[in-house]
Write a protein that binds this DNA or RNA. Structure first.
Length: 877
RNA sequence: GGGAGCUUAGCUCAGCUGGUUCAGAGCACCUGCCUUACAAGCAGGGGGUCACAGGUUCGAACCCUGUAGCUCCCA
C-alpha cells in the first residue's frame, strides 16, 4: 500500500469519530471502577463554536481521554444552556423579520416560536464539538430548560423561599432598555468612553445666587430632587437650609450635605437623581428624598419628565444641553473619560432603574462556598484566582434573580387580586396556600408572576441536575458521579457560574460539586483584543480544522496556553500543530517501510538504542504525568512533543535506521523492529489525548486489530520511578556527536564523507558501549582510543576527554588558536568564580555542605579541562 | 477611588524551598543542505542589564522597599 508523504486529516477524522461512536467508547454507566467526571460548561443554544469553546473543550477532552486510558470510568456530560436574554433576543429579531412583534403574541405563542428556534438551531454547537474530537457521552446530553431540569429550578426556588433566602422588593437594578429586563451586576460590563461633562447652574431659591453642578447625564436633570455638597466645603457652607430651582421643570428642591461628595470632582456640587443612579438612590434613602422616575423601561422619557416625553434618553441629552444653553444655564462643557455600564447580552447602555424584583440573599448561603475554596477542598487553577474569589465572596451582594422575559423558568409566585403573594409549584398548590393563610381566592383571580428566573439560576444546579440529583436523589448516577472531578471554564464566569455552583453544591448535596476548577485564558487576537463577533476578529474554528486538521488545531491551541493566561491567537500556532502531525505520520512511514529479517542478529548499537529509549521514555512519561497532575497542560504537551520529535524521531529512529547501501536500504533485525513497534505504540498512547485522530489511524495501520482494539481505550503506559545511568551517559554521547557534526559543518565536509575520530580519555573510566552509535550517527569510518594527542587534527575538549578529528585539509592554526584561547578564557573565568566562592569563608561556613562539595567538584573539572586545552594550544606551536 | 496580579529572547511562556558560568524551551530569525520517513524536513547558529532604582545576603530573575508600565476584579 502506498502511504502518502503528508498526513491527510480529512480521510481519518470523520472515520474514527464514527467508529468511536459506533463502539460506544464515550459512553459511561456507573460501575465498580473509579469515576472521572467532567460536566461541560453548557454553551448557549444560540452559540456557534468560537475559539474560546475550542480551547475549553480541547482541554476537557484531553483530560477525559487520558483518564479513560488510565482505566477510570470517564464521563463527560455535554449539554446546552437556554440563555434567556440571548435566545429571547434572537427569537424577537427573527419574528421581527417576519413582521411579528413580541407584544402581539401571547406568552404561549411566543414560547412556541422559541422552542421551534431551539430545535432548529440549538444543536449546532454540539455538532461542531464532534469535529474537534470531543469524546462526550452524547446519550447524556442535557438542556437547562428541559422538563426535569426546569422542575429542579422551580423546586429550588420554592425551597430557598421557604428557607427565607429569597425575597421580593423594590431595588435599584441594572436595567437593559433594549432587552427590557433587569440584569445582574455581573452582567454589566463597564467600559471607559469619551463623554462630556456639562456644568449647569441652578438658581438658589429666593436669591440672585446660582450654584453650578457638573453632570455627564443632563437628561436626568428633570428627575433631580436635591443638590448635594460636602459639609466641609467652604464654598457652599452658607447655603445651609437653602433650596434650588431645577431648570425647566422649575421644581424647588433642598440642598443637602453629605460626606459622600468628592470635593475635587466637577464643582463639588452634585445633582441628586434618586431614580437614575445607584449612589443618588442611596443618598435619597438616607436623606428621604422624593424619587421621580423620568425614564421609562424602553429608555425613553416618561410622562414624569414633563419634557421630551417619548424621546430617547441620548437624543434628549443633546437637546436638553442645547435648550439649557439657550436659557443661559450652561456654564461650560468639558470632554472627559468615564466608565459606562453596558449590557453583556445586548450591549445597550445600562440604565439604573428602580423596580420590583426577586432577590436571593447571599450572605449566609455563600459561606461554605467561601470556606471550602480557602481551605483547599476545592482548588482553583491557577491559584491566583483564590484571592479574587475571596474578595468577591466576602463582598457579595444579593442576587437579582428575576428577569422580565418569557424564555426561561417562570417564577412560581402567585398573586391574588389584592396583591397577596404565595410561592407554590402549581396554581392548585397556590390556592391551598392562600387558603391556609385564611385568604379566600378564586382560581381565575390568581395570577402567576410574569417574570422568569435568571439563566444562572438554572445553570448553578448543572452538576447536580445532569445526574438527576433533584428528581432522583438516591439514584445511581448522582451517587456515583457526584462530586465531579474537574471543571474547565473561563475566568470571566468565576462568579456568574462557578461560585454559584459551589453554593448550590453545598446547599443541595452537602458536598462540593467538583474538586478542581481549571480556569482557561481568554482567546485574543494578535492585537490583544478579545475575540468577538462584532469585531469579526475570530477565525471560524471549523475552517481551521479543515485547514490544519483537528489534531493540529488542538496542539496549536494548547502549546501556548498555560492556565489562566490569555492566549493571543494566530493561525501559525496551528501550523506548528499540523507540522507535528506530519512528523508523527512520517515516523510511522519510516517504521512501516522497514524490511524485516529474522536472519540478522541484533547489533550492539541497536541494543543500546533500545535500552536508552526505554529509559528515556520512562523518564519523560514520569514528567508528563507530574505535569498533568499539576494541570500544566501546555507543558505536558511540550514535553510530549519533544519526547516524540527529539527523542523518538531525531535520536532513536536515526540510531536504529538501517543503513542505505547500493541504492537500497538494508533490512532491520526482527528484535529491533519489534521493540520499535512497541515504542511507537507507547508514544502514540501518550500522544493520544492531544491528537486523538492521527494516533488512532496509525494504531490501526501498524497492526491487524479487532474493531474494538482502539487506542482510545488502550492503557496509559506504566512507568517505573527510577532514573537509569544510561540517560546520563547518553547526554555525554550526544554532546560528542553534536561536536563532531559541528566540525563537519564548519569545515564544510559533506555528510556523505566518512571521518575518523580519536578519543583521549583524561578522567574516569573508558566506556566503549556507545562507540558504534557515534560511528553511525556521525558517519565515521572509525572511532578509536589514543593515549596521546593527535597532531594536526581538529579537536574539541569535553569534561572527561579530548577528541581529535584529522582532516585532509590543513588546519588554520591561527583560527584554531583563537578558538581554543576563547575556550580557555571561559574556563579560566569559570574556575576563578568557583575559587572565589570557595575562598569565601562565609560561603564555606554558611552554604549547605553538598553545595560546597559540588563547588569543589566543579573546580576539579575546570582544572582538568584547562590543562587539556593548554596542552592543545601548546601542540599548535 | 479600593483590591489582586503581571513585567525574563522578536513572540508565547518555564525557571519548585535564594546556590552549577543560571539565564532556559518552543516558535520566529540567520546559514548550509531537495542526505529515499518527513523541505510541513535535516544539520548548525545568533538573540536577553531577567521593567527600573535601592536594600537584605557569602550569594538575588527568585526575598524586602520604592518607581514606572500593563492586565483583571470591585465601586
Amino acid at each position: 500500500m502506498e502511504i502518502p508523504k503528508t498526513y491527510d486529516p480529512k480521510i481519518t477524522e470523520d472515520k474514527w469519530y464514527a467508529h468511536w461512536l459506533k463502539h460506544k467508547f464515550f459512553k459511561s454507566t456507573p460501575d465498580e471502577r473509579e469515576p472521572y467526571t467532567i460536566v461541560i460548561p453548557p454553551p448557549n443554544v444560540t452559540g456557534v463554536l468560537h475559539m474560546g469553546h475550542m480551547l475549553n473543550n480541547t482541554i476537557q477532552d484531553v483530560l477525559i481521554r487520558r483518564a479513560r486510558m488510565q482505566g477510570k470510568n470517564a464521563c463527560w456530560v455535554p449539554g446546552t444552556d437556554h440563555a434567556s436574554i440571548a435566545t429571547e433576543a434572537k427569537v424577537v429579531a427573527l419574528l421581527a423579520e417576519k413582521g411579528i412583534k413580541k407584544t402581539d403574541l401571547s406568552r404561549e405563542d411566543f414560547l412556541k416560536h422559541a422552542w421551534e428556534w431551539k430545535e432548529k438551531y440549538g444543536g449546532i454547537i454540539l455538532k461542531q464539538l464532534e469535529k474537534l474530537g470531543a469524546s462526550c457521552d452524547w446519550d447524556r446530553t442535557r438542556f437547562t430548560m428541559e422538563n426535569d431540569l426546569s422542575e429542579a429550578v422551580i423546586d429550588v426556588f420554592i425551597d430557598l423561599y421557604n428557607k427565607g433566602h429569597i425575597y421580593r422588593g423594590v431595588r435599584m437594578v441594572n436595567w437593559d432598555p433594549q432587552g427590557l429586563t433587569a440584569v445582574s451586576d455581573e452582567e454589566v460590563i463597564h467600559k471607559e468612553v469619551n463623554s462630556k461633562l456639562y456644568y449647569v447652574k441652578y438658581k438658589i431659591e429666593g436669591s440672585d445666587e446660582w450654584i453650578t453642578i457638573a453632570t455627564t447625564r443632563p437628561e436626568t436633570i428633570l428627575g433631580d430632587t436635591a443638590v448635594c455638597v460636602h459639609p466641609d466645603d467652604e464654598r457652599y457652607k452658607h447655603l445651609n437650609g437653602k433650596r434650588v430651582i431645577i431648570p425647566m421643570v422649575n421644581r424647588s428642591v433642598p440642598i443637602i450635605f453629605d460626606t459622600y461628595i468628592d470635593l475635587e470632582f466637577g464643582t463639588g456640587a452634585l445633582k441628586v437623581t434618586p431614580a437614575h443612579d445607584i449612589n443618588d438612590y442611596n443618598l435619597g434613602v438616607k436623606h428621604k428624598l422624593e424619587v421621580i422616575d423620568t425614564i421609562a423601561a424602553d429608555g425613553k422619557m416618561s410622562a414624569a419628565a414633563q419634557f421630551y416625553i417619548g424621546e430617547d434618553r441620548f437624543a434628549v441629552r443633546k437637546k436638553i444641553a442645547k435648550d439649557l444653553e439657550e436659557m443661559g444655564q450652561i456654564v461650560k462643557i468639558e470632554d472627559i473619560k468615564n466608565k459606562v455600564g453596558y449590557s453583556e447580552r445586548t450591549n445597550a447602555v445600562i440604565e439604573p432603574k428602580l423596580s420590583m424584583q426577586w432577590f436571593l440573599k447571599m450572605d449566609q448561603i455563600s459561606k461554605p462556598a467561601l470556606d471550602n475554596v480557602l481551605n483547599g477542598e476545592i482548588k482553583l487553577i491557577p491559584e491566583k484566582f483564590v484571592n479574587t474569589y475571596k474578595h468577591w465572596m466576602e463582598n457579595v451582594h444579593d442576587w437579582c434573580i428575576s428577569r422580565q422575559l418569557w424564555w426561561g423558568q417562570q417564577i412560581p409566585a402567585w398573586y391574588d387580586s389584592k396583591g397577596n403573594t404565595v410561592v407554590a409549584k402549581t396554581i392548585d398548590e397556590a390556592i391551598e396556600k392562600f387558603k391556609s393563610q385564611k385568604l379566600e381566592v378564586k382560581k381565575e383571580d390568581i395570577k402567576q408572576d410574569e417574570d422568569v428566573l435568571d439563566t444562572w439560576f438554572s445553570s448553578w444546579l448543572w452538576p447536580i441536575s445532569v445526574f438527576d440529583g433533584f428528581k432522583n436523589p438516591d439514584g445511581k448516577d448522582i451517587k456515583y458521579y457526584y462530586p465531579t472531578n474537574d471543571l474547565v471554564t473561563a475566568p470571566e464566569i468565576l462568579f456568574f457560574w462557578v461560585a454559584r455552583m459551589i453554593i448550590a453544591g453545598y446547599e443541595y448535596q452537602g458536598k462540593k460539586p467538583f474538586t478542581n476548577v481549571y480556569l482557561t485564558g481568554i482567546v485574543r487576537d494578535k492585537q490583544g483584543r478579545k475575540m468577538s463577533k462584532s469585531l469579526g476578529n475570530s477565525p471560524d474554528p471549523i475552517e481551521l480544522i479543515e485547514k490544519y486538521g483537528a489534531d493540529g488545531v488542538r496542539v496549536g491551541m494548547l502549546l501556548c496556553s498555560p492556565a489562566g493566561n490569555d492566549l493571543p491567537f494566530d493561525d501559525s500556532m496551528c501550523e506548528q500543530g499540523r507540522n507535528f502531525s506530519n512528523k508523527v505520520w512520517n515516523a510511522f512511514r519510516l517504521i512501516n517501510g522497514f524490511e524485516v529479517s529474522s536472519d540478522i542478529k541484533q547489533n550492539d548499537a541497536n541494543k543500546i538504542a533500545i535500552e536508552w529509549f526505554d529509559a528515556k521514555f520512562n523518564e519523560q512519561v514520569e514528567i508528563i504525568n507530574d505535569l498533568y497532575s499539576k494541570y500544566r497542560m501546555s507543558e505536558a504537551l511540550m514535553t510530549t512533543y519533544k519526547l516524540v520529535w527529539d527523542d523518538f524521531c531525531a535520536w532513536y529512529l536515526e540510531m536504529i535506521k538501517p543503513e542505505f547501501v547500493d541504492g537500497k536500504s538494508l533490512p532491520i533485525d526482527k528484535a529491533t523492529y519489534d521493540a520499535t513497534l512497541v515504542f511507537l505504540e507507547k508514544v502514540l498512547k501518550v500522544l493520544h489525548p492531544f491528537m486523538p485522530f492521527i494516533t488512532e489511524e496509525i494504531w490501526h495501520l501498524i497492526a491487524d486489530r479487532s474493531e474494538k482494539d482502539c487506542i482510545i481505550v488502550a492503557e496509559w503506559p506504566k512507568t517505573k520511578n527510577e532514573t537509569a545511568d544510561i540517560i546520563k551517559h547518553f547526554d555525554v554521547v550526544m554532546e560528542v556527536i553534536t561536536n563532531i557534526r559541528n566540525i563537519r559543518k564548519q569545515k564544510n565536509i559533506s555528510p556523505k564523507e566518512k571521518l575518523q575520530v580519536f578519543e583521549k580519555v583524561n578522567q574516569g573510566e573508558v566506556i566503549k558501549t556507545y562507540d558504534s552509535l557515534i560511528i553511525k550517527l556521525c558517519n565515521l569510518s572509525s572511532f578509536e582510543y589514543v593515549t596521546a594527542k593527535v597532531d594536526g587534527a581538529f579537536s574539541f575538549v569535553l569534561k572527561h576527554a579530548e577528541y581529535y578529528v584529522p582532516l585532509s585539509q590543513n588546519i588554520d592554526v591561527a583560527a584554531e588558536k583563537e578558538r581554543l584561547a576563547k575556550d580557555l578564557d571561559y574556563n579560566k573565568g569559570f574556575l576563578k568564580s568557583v575559587q572565589t566562592k570557595l575562598a569565601n569563608e562565609k560561603f564555606v561556613a554558611n552554604a549547605k555542605p553538598e553545595m560546597v562539595e559540588n563547588e569543589k567538584k566543579k573546580m576539579a573539572d575546570a582544572e582538568s579541562k584547562i590543562k587539556a586545552i593548554e596542552e592543545q594550544l601548546a601542540g599548535l606551536n
